[in-house]
């Protein structure tokens, strides 16, 4: 990254600001005081070991969960700031946040094209005057629907799914279903695209194609991408900013290079260093005296 790029990246407008987010399930504090920002034109990755609270953060952002505490402010494309924690789920799509799921959630018995048309429900519903115009086949609605199909076609081309547009979504191969999820999310015309492990279950070639697609979305559409991912080859090559969570807390944040060499991150992923004190019970078995005990 050149100095110029860095300057441009820092100047990019903040899309999503997560402040002191906490999510409690009974006695479990799944997300504890997490703050970070996601900017337009950048890929922000959220990584961390299993159970670190990544998906919970996503569920709060997209309205699946009501956060126990904290604030999620999102700047819509008209500049107004929306507080996501106060909006019902179906409104969140309307202001420009789209997401995909770790386990694929397409409409399996609808065609590929129809999956993309459902994603444009709000503008089409408005254009069709609650389907009255659609039923009568009025020209105003025909035009809106043609535009909808055009947008769908654009994303089918970008994701390489044009040839299977008439298939039932459930019959697509796995990698294609993953791409269709992204295409469908993009058809809501989002400002922020949230992807929950988009590379899970993909082979290396498909992962590389995914990375290209995400890069082209970032650069072509200029929108923000928020990414949860385990596949480090994807995270490290395409992210502009990485947030690391462990046990619900943010333990590090920064560029991919900085995060990769961060001591706390290495500890979270690989465990303790050798020179850390042994757990007491192990020490007792080995007959070693532990500092501060048995004195």
């Amino acid at each position: 990254m050149t100095a110029l790029d860095t300057a441009a990246a820092t100047a990019a407008p903040v899309l999503l600001k997560v402040e002191h987010l906490c999510m409690r399930f009974g006695g479990l504090l799944a997300v504890n005081d997490v703050s970070f920002t996601a900017k337009a034109g950048q890929i922000t990755a959220v990584i961390g070991p299993n159970g670190a609270g990544k998906t919970t953060v996503f569920n709060c952002i997209t309205g699946f969960y009501r956060p126990s505490a904290g604030r999620l402010s999102f700047r819509g494309d008209d500049g107004t700031v929306h507080l996501l924690e106060r909006l019902p789920g179906y409104r969140i799509a309307g202001i420009g946040v789209a997401r995909t799921f770790q386990n694929i959630r397409l409409f399996p018995r609808m065609s590929v094209l129809e999956n993309l048309m459902v994603a444009q429900h709000r503008p089409l519903m408005r254009a069709s005057a609650f389907s009255v115009a659609g039923l009568l086949g009025l020209p105003s609605y025909r035009k809106a629907e043609r535009e909808g199909v055009e947008l769908a076609r654009h994303w089918l081309e970008r994701t390489g799914l044009v040839d299977v547009a008439d298939w039932e979504a459930g019959n697509l191969p796995y990698g294609a279903q993953r791409r269709l999820e992204i295409a469908r999310a993009m058809c809501t015309r989002p400002q922020l695209l949230c992807l929950d492990e988009p590379a899970a279950g993909l082979n290396p070639r498909e992962s590389a194609e995914l990375a290209d697609l995400l890069r082209s979305i970032r650069d072509g559409e200029g929108i923000g991408v928020l990414l949860i991912e385990h596949d480090m080859s994807v995270v490290m090559t395409i992210s502009d900013h990485v947030v690391v969570l462990d046990y619900g807390r943010k333990i590090a944040e920064g560029s991919p290079e900085a995060v990769r060499s961060d001591a706390a991150v290495i500890k979270a992923y690989l465990g303790e260093d050798e020179d850390d004190p042994l757990p007491p019970e192990v020490a007792a078995d080995l007959g070693v005296r532990v500092d501060g005990e048995g004195a």
Binding site: T62, G63, F64, G89, Y90, I92, A93, G94, A98, R99, F101, R105, L106, F107, P108, R109, M110, E114, M117, V118, A119, H121, R122, L124, M125, S128, F130, S131, G134, L135, R184, T188
Partner: peptide
């Protein structure tokens, strides 16, 4: 053939996801 019908079929298959897409 209408957005409403499409939304109904989408809700039939996955209400939560339909909601996330703005239905």
């Amino acid at each position: 053939g209408t957005p409403l019908g499409r939304a109904q079929r989408a809700c039939e298959q996955d209400k939560k996801m339909a909601g996330l897409l703005g239905v």
